[in-house]
Design a protein around this nucleic acid. Structure first.
Lengths: 253, 253
DNA sequence: CAGTGGTCTAGACCACCGC
DNA sequence: CGGTGGTCTAGACCACTGG
């Protein structure tokens, strides 16, 4: 609290912390104003010159601060247009781990069906990931994603509950196929980045049935933690898909 | 050819291409001097001030050019020390896809054993990856990597042959456990970056025997193309490992 | 201590965009 | 056209490193 207070006070005309570069301090200041919603995702910040003058800093210094936030994925700069707060992740990103081709088409967004939805107390793992006390209420959902009518991905999703209350009673039929834009629309939560962890395993009988495979079929499990603009984890998700459809490419260094 | 020629001619005192930023042109110029071996990996470049004066450019402009090369992984800057040509990839990077723990130890470099080595004509896939004509001579090797005496990774490696002739007759027992440093030491080839492609599959009987698993055991296959400082692909490798030891984490955006 | 890269300034001019 | 970010300059001073 004190930190926030002093940050706001010093935003007008003060020094960066000792040993802290001025552009680093400036970036923190701007980051706070963005995560606090002063500039809504998709909108433009004031021009370089205005921001520089406002903070009593040279243009080059301000640009270094903005470069940091661009690298973090918080901002996006467009030549001749302006500096924009990033709109957030789209949501079809799970496809980068699998190839589900259908008649040569490859750009289809999988259709989404909510299989179950319930409020329950968070078990230790989920609570830890979401930064909640063990036993806090979370919304748990199961979701099946299909391409051209063929089920291909089975997901289990946990959401912290004060923030996502709206989803408890809203009609899933009207949600659409992507959750991240939904979070932004209905809950005001912008997903900015995510971390995926991949493992290999075998499908249980129940899982296999839903995916129209046999029990014991090899599968890849993607465990994802998704973070909002402030860096807080606001969604935990595990996705199961056929191991034979798995493919992934990575750059080293 | 013409491009290289003119780049060399203009390196002394000319203009960047029209529509090309000066720091971008400067970066190309420096990149060429690095890949041509003017500065050996591990050594320091002249100081900022010297380079800036040499190219008749302001300090800030030179720093932008260097920043590009740092982002490419070609250079490394150390405050108070200097600007260094990167030493190249270490080589233990395959471990990031698997977890082979042994008694709680996790930082061990796997021991390496060369199982076979032969010169043969490149098949179309390999030739295409290496940028060679089909049927060109390549050195093919099979290699088994073990942690604490337990075999864990089975590799097949292809190298283009004029460049890696030295490895045909050299004694593999003296190679050590990492190939990339070996390439640099014996062949003067620095591995700067690589691309990995992951798939899932089942072990053949022969593969399973070498890894001390049963035939048909699930495995992850990593297909890697490795590139030198000039961006040319100089090694193709496929690595097989137990799917149950597979784990990987990735950042999204 | 001398030499290196890191930060910061206060300008100028250019390239792109949308009206 | 006016407004935006992108490039470039020619300095100054600071912070780190090694002998």
């Amino acid at each position: 609290m004190t930190a926030i207070r002093s940050a706001q006070l010093t935003a007008g005309a003060a020094q960066p912390a000792p040993g802290q570069s001025r552009y680093g301090w400036l970036a923190s200041s701007l980051r706070a104003r963005i995560t606090h919603g002063e500039w809504v995702p998709g909108t433009a910040l004031p021009a370089e010159a205005a921001l520089a003058k406002e903070h009593g800093v040279a243009l080059g210094t301000l640009r270094q601060a903005l470069a940091l936030l661009v690298a973090e994925g918080l901002l996006e700069r467009r030549h001749g247009r302006g500096t924009f707060v990033r709109a957030g992740l789209g949501g079809a990103s799970m496809l980068r781990f699998f190839r589900f081709r259908h008649g040569g088409e490859m750009k289809t967004t999988p259709a989404s069906a909510i299989l179950s939805r319930q409020v329950l107390p968070a078990d230790p793992d989920i609570a830890d990931s979401l930064g909640l006390p063990v036993g806090a209420s979370v919304l748990e959902m199961q979701r099946l994603r299909s391409v051209a009518g063929e089920p291909c991905l089975l997901e289990q999703i946990w959401l912290p509950l004060p923030a996502f209350d709206v989803l408890k009673d809203s009609d899933p039929g009207a949600w659409g196929d992507l959750l991240y834009p939904l979070y932004q629309r209905l809950c005001g939560v912008t997903i900015n980045k995510a971390e995926d962890e991949l493992r290999f395993g075998l499908l249980t009988h129940a899982q296999a049935t839903l995916l129209r495979l046999e029990a014991g079929h090899p599968c890849v499990q993607v465990s994802r933690s998704a973070f909002d603009l402030g860096g807080r984890c606001v969604e935990v998700r595990t996705t199961l898909g056929d191991a034979y459809a798995f493919h992934y490419t990575a750059q080293v260094r």
